[in-house]
Design a protein around this nucleic acid. Structure first.
Length: 578
DNA sequence: GCCGTTTTCGGCCCGACTGTTTTCAGTCG
């Protein structure tokens, strides 16, 4: 079973255990293990098969969880999970997504009214029966009904790009308040996660409290979830994105930024470390433990993240790595990667023009790329299998390649390579014949159809495609569309190993709807020796700006400039693909 | 259930806010 699926079984069991009010520390262990496994670059199944390796060597996995993983591999479930599912139906898990309800309330609702679905919960609220339960009232009924509506609309997640736009808008708005010095986005947005659940903003300066007032009165705020002297939470915009704003003094800025950037697992790990070193860490600072008075005299660090990490014996950890998946150990040993940055990117090698389904001409795309400071691009229009995208057949592809070369030689202000995004057909053959592909500088192979094959068939399809001598890269390798479509099933590790062997690049597609590969897969592929390209797949000049999202995914995958082909010069790119 | 330059047993991250209370449990991040 895939790591992600194993992690999910553990996390769900932890949720059920929480509803069942089991030991909270055991629950935490399950959650920690789930997080570690989800981000682990190697499949649990292959570790089990390897006599050289032990699951218990992974931090967060001990004898108990190792046995559970073995049991999962054997039969798809494990004893405690079965036991929990015997006590509480799986439907309760979804109820935990409703804001205002936690495990205690979910259990009470189930025990009292047998509520085990969102629909039933909605009915109980509408019939005003929730208020009959202890410590619950009319206000909670209303809150839960609003939460249900919001959950149904969005499933609670938003694209990173959506969060970024909201953050930009609010930061500009709040920065205009007198006395506000800085407004910064923290949370999963700062970590560059492909989807975010909410938006966390921090404001510093004497005007920070005034910023809270202005915040809750923003015209696009349509619900205030809470407001105190230090923080406020609202639902923002028609989509109902939750935004939290925190007001704080500049002296605590680093501690607060660290705290609100998360991830939660990273924070817990950090605090645990602080405790062992005789400190306590909260959002106000790092303080000496066992000191009766917690005041400035006991505070050892708080103004910047760097000083807090340093006091804990760690190098500063880039936000994208803060997922409690090895970054703490690397920071301790001064072995953190020197992550790729957007300024390292010198070319963009997946984009479309009006020749297929792009919205701008070759000249317009080239001009936009030049304005962005790129040194080279590759034009990769679709192949004929994508008829609805006006994909190119052999004749058109070759003719267009000539046209691209001609324009390149006339000079467009940057180097333009002739390429193609060639469909990988159902049986793994390329959509265009070899002799046509041979005319092109750069062929990206992508799957756009028959995505519901069995995993083995899909794996074979990709392996077969890589036999094509002209294939240089695999485009959006998993086919996922965020919040809409899961990755198609295939054995990623086998495909990645073959790509590494054949020196075929894996694309990190920077389109905000895709962000394909995920961080975990990037790490897994890198561990197998793969190299990458980060590409925007732009269909319009403005899409070229999406490069920043692709770079953030690469950073989350621990990539350095040398792992990425398009950080190299046009000359070196040409050499590498020749 | 995990983990160990205090420990193989006994710890395990921390605080704000809300709504319902008669002093705080539950939820959230």
């Amino acid at each position: 079973m895939e790591n992600r699926a194993i992690a999910r079984l553990l996390a769900e069991t932890a949720d059920l255990m929480e509803i069942s009010a089991e030991d909270s520390f055991r629950i935490r262990s399950y959650r920690t293990a789930a997080g570690v496994i989800e981000g682990y670059p190697e499949q649990m199944a292959s570790i089990l098969k390897d006599p050289e390796k032990k699951l218990t060597d992974i931090a967060g996995i001990g004898k108990g969880i190792a046995a559970i993983i073995e049991e999962i591999e054997e039969r798809g479930s494990f004893e405690r999970r079965d036991e929990m599912l015997g006590k509480y139906p799986a439907g309760l898990l979804e109820l935990l997504n409703i804001q205002g309800l936690g495990p205690k309330s979910v259990r009470l609702l189930y025990d009292t009214y047998k509520v085990e679905s969102i629909d039933e919960l909605e009915r109980i609220c509408k019939e005003q029966k929730l208020r009959d339960l202890p410590r619950m009232g009319a206000k909670l009924e209303e809150k839960v009904l609003r939460s249900i509506a919001s959950y149904r609309k969005t499933q609670g997640r938003f694209l990173l790009s959506f969060g970024q736009r909201a953050a930009d808008e609010l930061i500009e708005y709040l920065s205009s308040v007198a006395g506000v010095e800085t407004v910064t986005a923290a949370g999963s947005l700062r970590r560059g996660k492909e989807t975010i659940g909410d938006l966390d903003l921090l404001a510093t300066g004497t005007g920070a409290e005034a910023a809270l007032e202005k915040f809750v009165s923003h015209p696009r705020v349509h619900e205030v979830l809470g407001k105190g002297p230090n923080k406020a939470s609202v639902k923002f915009g028609l989509e109902g994105l939750q935004v939290d704003l925190r007001a704080l003094g500049a002296e605590s800025y680093g501690a607060a930024l660290l705290y609100f950037t998360g991830s939660k697992e990273h924070n817990i790990s950090l605090r645990s470390r602080a405790q062992k070193l005789g400190f306590t860490l909260n959002e106000y600072g790092l303080e000496l433990l066992d000191n009766a008075r917690l005041d400035n005299e006991t505070r050892v660090a708080s103004a910047t993240e760097e000083e807090i990490y340093a006091k804990l014996g760690l190098d500063w950890i880039p936000p994208e790595l803060r997922e409690n998946s090895g970054e703490m150990e690397a920071a301790e040993e001064h072995k953190l990667p020197r992550l790729v940055e957007e300024r390292h990117i010198r070319g963009d090698v997946h984009m479309h023009t009006t020749e297929s389904d792009g919205r701008a001409t070759l000249a317009e795309m080239a001009e936009a790329a030049r304005e962005r400071g790129l040194e080279y691009i590759a034009i990769t229009d679709h192949s004929k299998a994508l008829a609805m995208a006006n994909g190119l057949d052999e004749k058109r592809a070759v003719a267009f390649a000539h046209q691209v070369r001609e324009m390149d030689q006339r000079g467009l202000g940057l180097r333009v390579f002739s390429g193609l995004e060639c469909d990988i057909l159902r049986d793994g053959k390329m959509d265009l014949a070899d002799d046509a592909l041979a005319e092109l500088d750069w062929v990206v192979g992508s799957v756009h159809s028959y995505m519901n094959l069995e995993a083995a068939e899909m794996t074979d399809r990709l392996l077969r495609a890589m036999e094509c001598p002209h294939l240089k890269a695999i485009g959006h390798p998993t086919g996922r569309i965020l919040l809409h479509r899961e990755s198609f099933p295939f054995d990623f590790e086998v495909v990645a190993a073959e790509a590494a062997r054949r020196k075929i690049y894996l694309e990190i597609n920077a389109s905000p709807e895709r962000l394909d590969l995920s961080a975990a897969l990037i790490r897994a592929a890198k561990a197998r020796g793969c190299k990458f390209v980060i590409s925007t797949d732009a269909h319009h000049p403005k899409h070229l700006a999406n490069m920043s999202y692709g770079v953030r995914m690469a950073r989350r995958g621990w990539l350095e400039p040398r792992d990425i082909l398009n950080t190299h010069s046009a000359v070196d790119f040409a050499k590498a693909i020749a």
